[in-house]
Design a protein around this nucleic acid. Sequence first.
DNA 1: TATATTTGCAACCAATCAGTTTCATATAGA
DNA 2: TCTATATGAAACTGATTGGTTGCAAATATA
Lengths: 106, 106
Amino acid sequence: MRRDIFQAIADPTRRAIITLIALQAMTPNALAEQFDMTRQAVSKHIKILTECQLVNQEQAGREIYYKLDTNKMKEIDNWLEQFRKIWESRFNQLDTVLSTIKKQKK
Amino acid sequence: MRRDIFQAIADPTRRAIITLIALQAMTPNALAEQFDMTRQAVSKHIKILTECQLVNQEQAGREIYYKLDTNKMKEIDNWLEQFRKIWESRFNQLDTVLSTIKKQKK
DNA sequence: TATATTTGCAACCAATCAGTTTCATATAGA
DNA sequence: TCTATATGAAACTGATTGGTTGCAAATATA
């Protein structure tokens, strides 16, 4: 059951949960109302997000408020970093290809 | 078999394939040499990446060179965009929380 | 105290996944 | 032409996934 962040965000329901609690902390019950599935199913998704440390919890009596840990989200951003350089330079490469085509047409 | 980019990058082998072909286009055989699994297994991963349009192919005789489609990678970046604002403002919130704690201690 | 609410956990199940082996096809080279 | 090489596709398999129902524990409220 050791899952990483990439597996965590692979599921559309979990991405939706992330988006919801990014705006404000929510209880499992409140979250479950937003989806067409049982509270327990949503709770299992929350558990996975918690195991990946994408989500923090805060107890308030018998209610538990879950909120997003944005620091963990940055790890996805960090992984993308290596490609960001490429797609920026790829732009330049495309420019040179296009200008070559233009020259050939002339 | 309709998978999205988030499911595509969930698998560690597929992320490794993406990293490898980001640097240079590679054939399935060359790619398979980098992993401890059969060529067919690697080919199945390539197929999934192709279906998600994360990967392009270029035929060269009987060889096929696969290369990364960086435009599709940007979609992940776009999804992260909504959280980037939050983790930047969260920084500020943390600052105010810390200063509040400091004041209380005094 | 008795009851209702909020939550997590365990057991179960059908569907999907990631790998395998086997086979067919197309191209390169002797 | 014959043989070796490069590739994809199909069938199969065990493990994992995402959902369900049922139950137990803790807290709030009458």
